[in-house]
Deep mutational scan, measured.
Amino acid sequence: MTFKLIINGKTLKGETTTEAVDAATAEKVFKQYFNDNGIDGEWTYDDATKTFTITE
């Protein structure tokens, strides 16, 4: 399955996707992406659209 990440950061904005077997696996991938890029904020997940959103 394809999961999308929408980034609404102070310095970084955009979208990316990842292929994962489930939302929990995608969450781990995206959290690592947050850490690697110094993004910290509030994030949500919409199961209907398989979209994670992080807002700094």
Rank of each mutant, 00 (worst) to 15 (best):
N8K: 10
K50N: 07
K13Q: 10
Q32N: 08
N8Y: 13
T17D: 04
N35E: 13
G14C: 15
L5P: 01
E15W: 14
D47I: 07
T17R: 07
G14M: 14
E42N: 08
G9N: 05
E15S: 10
K50M: 10
Y33A: 05
N8G: 03
K50P: 00
E15C: 15
N37L: 15
Y45A: 00
F34M: 15
E27H: 09
I6Y: 04
T55F: 07
I6P: 00
F3G: 01
D47C: 05
N35Q: 14
E19G: 03
D40T: 14
D40V: 14
T44E: 08
K28P: 01
I7F: 13
K10A: 11
T17P: 02
W43R: 00
T18Q: 04
T55C: 04
K31G: 03
A24V: 10
A48N: 09
T17M: 09
G14P: 05
Y45E: 00
F30Q: 00
G38A: 11
F30Y: 02
I54V: 14
F52C: 01
D47L: 04
G41C: 08
F52I: 01
N8P: 02
I39L: 12
D36Q: 11
L12M: 11
G9I: 15
T53H: 05
G9P: 03
M1V: 10
Y45H: 00
T18P: 01
T16Q: 12
K13P: 06
T53S: 04
Q32S: 11
I6N: 03
I39C: 10
E27K: 07
V29H: 11
D36C: 10
G41D: 03
W43V: 06
N35A: 14
E15L: 08
W43D: 00
I54E: 00
E56M: 12
T18E: 03
T55Y: 08
E56H: 06
I7V: 08
T17H: 10
F3E: 01
T25G: 07
N37I: 15
T25Y: 06
T11E: 10
G9E: 02
E56T: 10
T51F: 01
L5T: 02
D22T: 04
F30V: 03
F52G: 00
K31W: 06
F52Y: 04
A48H: 09
D22H: 02
I7W: 12
I39H: 04
K50R: 13
T18C: 14
E19K: 12
G41R: 04
I6W: 03
Q32L: 10
T16V: 15
W43P: 02
A26N: 00
F52Q: 00
F34Q: 15
N35M: 14
W43T: 03
D22A: 02
K10C: 14
I39W: 12
Q32I: 07
T25C: 06
D36F: 12
I6A: 03
E42M: 12
E42D: 11
N37Q: 14
A23L: 05
E27N: 04
T51M: 02
L12H: 12
E56R: 04
D47W: 05
D46H: 05
T16F: 15
A24R: 09
V29M: 10
G41W: 15
T44F: 10
A48Q: 10
A23R: 11
E19L: 13
K4A: 03
I54Q: 02
T25I: 06
T55P: 01
T2C: 13
I39E: 04
T53M: 07
A23C: 10
